[in-house]
Amino acid sequence: MSKIESPKTHDSLEFGGSVWLQSGAQTLGGAARIGLLAAIRDSGSITAAAKSVGMSYKAAWDAIDTMNNLAGKPLVTTATGGRGGGGTKLTPTALRLIETYRAVEREHRKFLQRAGEAIEGFAQDWQLIGRLGMKTSARNQLAGKVTKLTRGAVNDEVELGLPGGQTIVAVVTHESTEALGLKEGSDAFALIKASWVMLMEDTNAKLSARNQLRGTVASVTKGAVNAEVTLSLNDATTITAIITNQSADTLGLAQGQKAVAVIKASSVIIGVND
C-alpha cells in the first residue's frame, strides 16, 4: 500500500506514493530496495550505493541477501580481482526488475493523481485503507507518528505519539531505524502481542517498564484459565491484554474501571507502510 502525504492547502493536492513487488507472501522490494539496486548499478560498489541511499553497509547487505533469497536467483553478484577487475554488478534479472518497478511506479503515481482530483479526502482514506489491510499475529496495532527519535550507542529509542495524546516508546536497532526510514514526523505503527501487556490499577506507582497507557476497561472476557481484557485509551484506540483469571479477580477488573496497560519498550515492534 502507499504512503500518501496530506494536502498542504484546500486548493492544492500533492500526493506521494510507492509500490512494492512481492514474491509469494514476502515483500521482494519497495522504493528503498529498488533504490539500492539502482545505486549499485550506477556505482558498481555496495559501499558507495549504501552511502548514497542513506543505509549502513550491513543494512545494505542484509537487503541484498533478502532480495536474492526471495527472488530465487541472484540479483547482485560480486567479483574480486581477475582480468576484468573486481566490483559489484547486477544480473539481467535485477536490471529488468528496476525497469519494471519504475514503469509500474509511474503508472501508480498517475492513478494517485487522478484519484486525488476526483475523490474528496482521498489521501487520508488511502492511508487508512493501507493500515486496515495489514495482517499480523500481534493483537494490538496502534497507529501514530514518530514524535522523538533518540540515538543510542547500540540501539535507538523511538517515541510514537498516539491519538489522544499518549505516547509509546520502543527500542529498536540502528539497522531497523534505517531500514524503516524512521524520522520525527513520519507515520508508523506499534505492534504488541496481548500476552506482552500487563495491567495494573490506575495509581502513580513507579515502574521500570517505560510504557504506561491509561484507559478505561471496555470488556473482560474470561476463559478456562485466562481472561482477555480490553482497555479503551480514547474513543478510537484500544489495547488488549491476556492475563490470568486470578489476576483479573485480584485487580477487580470490570467494565468502566480505570486501569493502566504496562508494556516494556523492548516488547514494542515498530512498523511502517512501505
Rank of each mutant, 00 (worst) to 15 (best):
M1V: 07
A224T: 15
G185R: 10
S6K: 01
A190E: 09
T136I: 01
A118D: 12
E120T: 14
G82V: 00
A32V: 12
M198W: 06
V158E: 04
T100M: 04
D249V: 03
V171W: 03
L142A: 11
A236Q: 15
S208I: 14
V217D: 14
S52E: 15
T136E: 09
E175C: 05
V104A: 02
L70W: 08
G144P: 09
Q127P: 00
M134E: 11
I270L: 10
L13Y: 03
L207M: 13
T91M: 08
K110Q: 08
A32G: 12
A261F: 14
V76G: 04
G44V: 09
L162E: 02
Q22D: 09
K110S: 11
T100Q: 06
T136N: 11
R106E: 09
R106Y: 04
I4A: 02
R106I: 10
D125M: 15
Q124C: 09
S56P: 03
A153L: 15
S137L: 05
H108M: 04
I192P: 03
L97P: 07
I270Q: 02
L70I: 08
L112H: 12
Y101G: 01
E178T: 10
G144N: 08
T150H: 01
A254Y: 05
N204V: 13
A71H: 03
V104L: 04
Q124R: 12
P7N: 08
I168Y: 02
M67N: 03
A261M: 10
A170Q: 01
L251G: 02
N204Y: 12
E159K: 07
E178M: 11
L36W: 13
I129K: 13
R41K: 07
T47R: 15
A118G: 05
A218Y: 06
Q22M: 12
Q26Y: 11
L75G: 01
A170R: 02
P74N: 08
I119T: 12
T136G: 14
R114E: 13
K135H: 08
V260N: 07
V225M: 05
S56E: 08
R214D: 09
G81Q: 03
V154Q: 11
S186A: 10
A254R: 14
S2H: 01
K58M: 08
T238V: 15
T147R: 04
I4D: 04
T167C: 05
A153T: 14
L90K: 06
G16H: 00
E107V: 07
L97R: 02
V19C: 05
